[in-house]
């Protein structure tokens, strides 16, 4: 059993050659477990040197997508493109160019950080022991302590050190901050940002936390139910998505019946709400506006739209409607769908 050389060259097939600015692309990835479709035709593109926040709820398909990108799972359909090399499944040679930190760490409990470095280094030809030692020092990981005796945060940092010590072209982190305390989360994200800033490291990290994406990501992809619902820059996303809110409606004047008996003893009928006129949605049927979510209540309509026109949301709204900007969290909710059961 021999592995292909670590150096990857683009194929001769012109169709497989893509824009060089992409470090990683996924094209139409699909994965089913029995009857359940976990990832359903997902497209994804991570630009070189950027940090990509892969945002989605628990169970949205983030980990399955990442495991397919890492070659741990085989996609049922679709292709993956690493640095211009298109493949159905990530090969061992390609994996050597990736640093990977999984959601939970399953290190050998008897191995110390130093032993883990020696072991993992055996699988990467360009393993840099000095860099690994430096990372252990910088990340304050005791090199001779067994991995079973390290805290969750320490273990995650150790995983990051192991992922970085072979100078990967691409760093893939699967919910790296899950289970960490706020300080450790902040520390971890700073390390990732420094890696991108100082070493131009392309990074894809998955998370279900919007604040992390806001803090670290240059580009965001929002996945829901195995489908990429949005992919783009954060600023564009903020500019494109707005909430359209109906102003309070005018009640229809209805003549009140005369009261026949003013005595205190007689029971009074309950006050009925006055009927109102529902305003017509001004964006219904307009090209360039995509309804993401309808949050309407009986009293008023609330509609979240994404505008894909070159200059979004510049047109004035008719009377009775106002446009509200949204936080990234609201936008995520609109995409990922806040599904509160009516109880």
């Amino acid at each position: 059993m021999t592995d292909a050389p670590a150096t990857v060259t683009p194929t001769d097939n012109p169709e497989s050659l893509t824009e060089e600015s992409s470090a990683l692309r996924a094209i139409g990835l699909r994965k089913r477990y029995g009857r359940v479709s976990v990832v359903n035709g997902l497209d994804l593109e991570v630009p070189r040197g950027k940090i990509y926040g892969f945002l989605g709820r628990n169970g949205a398909g983030k980990t399955t997508t990442i495991r397919m990108l890492m070659g741990i799972l085989k996609p049922d359909r679709g292709e993956i493109e690493f640095f211009g090399h298109r493949t159905r499944r990530t090969t061992t040679a390609l994996k050597r160019r990736i640093g990977y930190v999984s959601q939970s760490q399953h290190f050998y409990p008897w191995m110390s950080a130093r032993q883990l470095g020696r072991f993992v280094g055996g699988f990467y030809p360009n393993w840099d022991t000095a860099e690994y030692d430096r990372l252990l020092r910088v990340l304050e990981i005791p090199p001779d302590r067994r991995s079973s005796q390290l805290s969750g945060g320490m273990r995650m940092k150790l995983a990051l050190a192991l992922a970085l010590a072979h100078h990967p072209d691409l760093l893939i982190l699967d919910e790296p901050t899950a289970g960490l305390d706020p300080v450790a989360q902040r520390e971890f994200l700073e390390i990732v940002k420094n890696q991108s800033r100082n070493h131009g490291r392309t990074t894809l990290f998955s998370t279900h936390r919007i604040d992390e994406v806001e803090r670290a990501a240059d580009k965001v992809g929002i996945i829901d139910e195995g489908v990429m619902r949005y992919e783009g820059d954060l600023d564009d996303l903020r500019a494109e998505v707005r909430r359209l809110v109906e102003m309070p409606r005018k009640p229809i004047a209805v003549p009140q019946p005369t009261e026949p008996d003013e005595s205190d003893d007689a029971p009074k009928p309950p006050a009925l709400p006055l009927p109102t006129v529902r305003r017509e949605n001004p964006l219904a049927g307009h090209d360039g506006y995509e309804l993401l979510r309808d949050e309407s209540v009986p009293e008023r309509q609330q509609l979240i739209y994404r505008c894909t026109l070159p200059s979004p949301w510049m047109a004035p709204m008719p009377d009775g409607w106002r446009i509200e900007p949204l936080s990234l969290e609201d936008i995520f909710m609109a995409y990922a769908g806040l599904r509160v059961a009516e109880v």
Partner: peptide, 9 residues
């Protein structure tokens, strides 16, 4: 721990 091995090349 086989999951750790599988994450390696």
């Amino acid at each position: 721990t086989q999951l750790f091995l599988e994450s390696l090349p």
